[in-house]
Amino acid sequence: MGRADSLERVPANSAAIDDYLKTIYHHTEWQDDPITPSQLAAELALAPSTVTEMVQKLAAQQLVTHRPYGPVSLTDAGRARAAAIIRRHRLIETWLVREFGYAWDEVHDEAEVLEHAISDRLLEGISARLGHPMHDPHGDAIPDASGAVVREPFVLLAQAQPGHSGRVLRVSDRDPALLRALEGAGIDVGHHVTAAGDGTVRVDGGATVELPAGAASAVWITA
């Protein structure tokens, strides 16, 4: 039996595949370093041995490239599949906020469920109703039907020099409590902030506010 044959094949429509591909895709959206197996295991809260086995299966299906102890990268096929499921997720988040009054800290878990449940026809109907948005409520780019995305040059707020002013492009949706704290401080996608370098920012050219803990590493602004 060949090595590829010895690897239990994951069903092509497996949600587990989507979770891995989405995580790999996310990792390089806002920085350039490819993800390592240990980082992938931490992101997915799985044992390293489990991730190693799955990466081998994904490589056998030509969805990722990987060499022992090296980073994991998406193939063209893997990136196309990741972009398609991310398009679903982010369109659903946008739909829930605009049409159903969800707050931006409430939509992630709902979208995780719905992204696997709705048809392609309904998804494209949602996109058309929303005017084919290019970004979700957190500022993440929504891939178009071909997988293409549009992003402006950006800098992480934690790396911005004091005095740097920019428009908030993206806020990480990882921590709902932080999203609520940032919203309370007036720091939201589309607002302008000026970095002060002392844990504070000036918002929209007006009040200076103290950044909530962890905010500087969760906010991206125009470069």
Rank of each mutant, 00 (worst) to 15 (best):
S119H: 07
L182S: 06
V155S: 02
H132Y: 12
E183Y: 04
T94G: 00
V189A: 06
D175V: 12
P133S: 05
V189T: 11
D144W: 04
V149P: 00
Y102Q: 12
S119L: 07
D188H: 06
S127H: 07
R129L: 15
I187K: 03
R151M: 14
A160F: 03
H191L: 04
E183D: 14
F100A: 08
W104F: 08
Y102M: 13
A181C: 01
G147A: 10
R174L: 12
D144C: 05
A177H: 10
D173P: 01
R151V: 13
A141E: 05
V155W: 01
G190W: 01
A103C: 08
P176K: 06
H135Y: 12
H108V: 15
T94P: 01
D175S: 11
L122F: 08
D140L: 02
L156Y: 00
I142G: 02
G125Y: 02
D175M: 06
A111E: 06
W104T: 13
D105G: 07
G139H: 04
L96N: 06
P137S: 09
D175E: 12
E106P: 04
L114G: 03
F154A: 12
V97M: 09
W104P: 02
V113E: 12
G190R: 03
H135N: 11
V150N: 08
W95Q: 05
D188R: 15
S165L: 09
E112P: 04
V155H: 01
I118N: 04
L157T: 06
S165D: 09
E183V: 04
D173V: 00
A141V: 12
P133C: 08
A111Q: 07
T94M: 08
A103V: 02
E112D: 14
D140Q: 10
A148C: 00
W104G: 00
R180N: 03
I187S: 01
D105P: 00
V171H: 02
V97R: 03
